[in-house]
Design a binder for these strands. Structure first.
Length: 254
DNA sequence: ATGGCGCGCGCAGCGCGA
């Protein structure tokens, strides 16, 4: 089973890229972030024609998450139960016995911002909830845009980004707390190329200059990590005209 | 040199992303 996550930065704009990528990469399950669509506008028919069922939780202009699957989706739940949040950032569903959680972690803006405080609170709530989800669902995958570069090797210029949002120690500690629940960063289960990133700023030709961060992740419970045969980042869609600033991240489960 | 790009909204230019 091929699992993937992709922050599309507007599904309305990126639908042609998504359809092209689905046929090329042939993922079985795809978690999307920043769909920026109300549920009534979700392109259900186009995706069904491509062979995918959809679950979605969206809002106008900001945020919005979705799970696409070639196999039936069951037990869909939106949000973090018990954590009140207007922002549509979490969606869960079960596919072929795997519990899939799609997350769009808040950006945080800057470490002195109220949005940064919200990000850390949000991550604490996610962690507390996932502890129980891991007990309920041994085969658990948490995929999404975490807005955290876990280590310096995930950053093109660690000195410039030191203590900045996406790289600050409290954010990295929150990421390590997720791993400590019993989740593995599937990308690091394998040898990977140098300068492997999942996001590049639109400005300054950052992509061409390999100035990126690895902030999109596929975390797997131990039973799933044991079945993980490969993990990669597909930079092909980032080369297209009007690309998303994020690339899809993939994990293959046997 | 702290903006540079792209998106939504909505029709000018701002908020936001990361």
């Amino acid at each position: 089973m091929r699992l993937a996550t992709w922050n599309v930065n507007s599904l309305k704009v990126r639908l042609p890229h998504l359809l092209d990528w689905l046929s090329r990469a042939a993922p079985d399950v795809v978690c999307l972030q920043e769909t920026k669509l109300e549920d009534g506008s979700f392109p259900v028919n186009e995706l069904r024609a491509a062979g995918y069922e959809c679950a979605f939780s969206g809002q106008k202009t900001y945020n919005g998450v979705a799970i696409l699957s070639r196999l039936p989706l069951a037990e869909t739940v939106a949000g973090i139960p018990g954590y009140a949040d207007e922002q549509k950032r979490v969606l869960s569903a079960t596919v072929a016995g795997v519990r899939v959680v799609c997350v769009y972690v808040p950006n945080g803006q800057s470490t002195d911002s109220d949005k940064y405080r919200y990000k850390l609170d949000w991550l604490a709530a996610l962690s507390a909830w996932l502890a129980g989800e891991l007990r309920r669902h041994p085969a658990l995958a948490v995929l999404g845009d975490y807005n955290i570069a876990p280590e310096d090797r995930d950053v093109y210029d660690p000195a410039a980004w030191k203590d900045q949002v996406l790289c600050s120690e409290p954010e990295r500690a929150a990421f390590r707390a997720l791993l400590a629940l019993g989740l593995r960063d599937s990308f690091r289960l394998f040898e990977q190329p140098e300068r492997a990133y999942s996001w590049w700023d639109y400005r300054m030709k950052a992509f061409q200059r390999k100035m990126g961060l690895r902030i999109d992740h596929v975390l797997l419970s131990e039973p799933l990590a044991g079945r993980c045969a490969a993990a990669s980042i597909d930079v092909q869609p980032r080369r297209l005209d009007r690309p998303s600033d994020h690339a899809p991240v993939i994990a293959d489960i046997t």
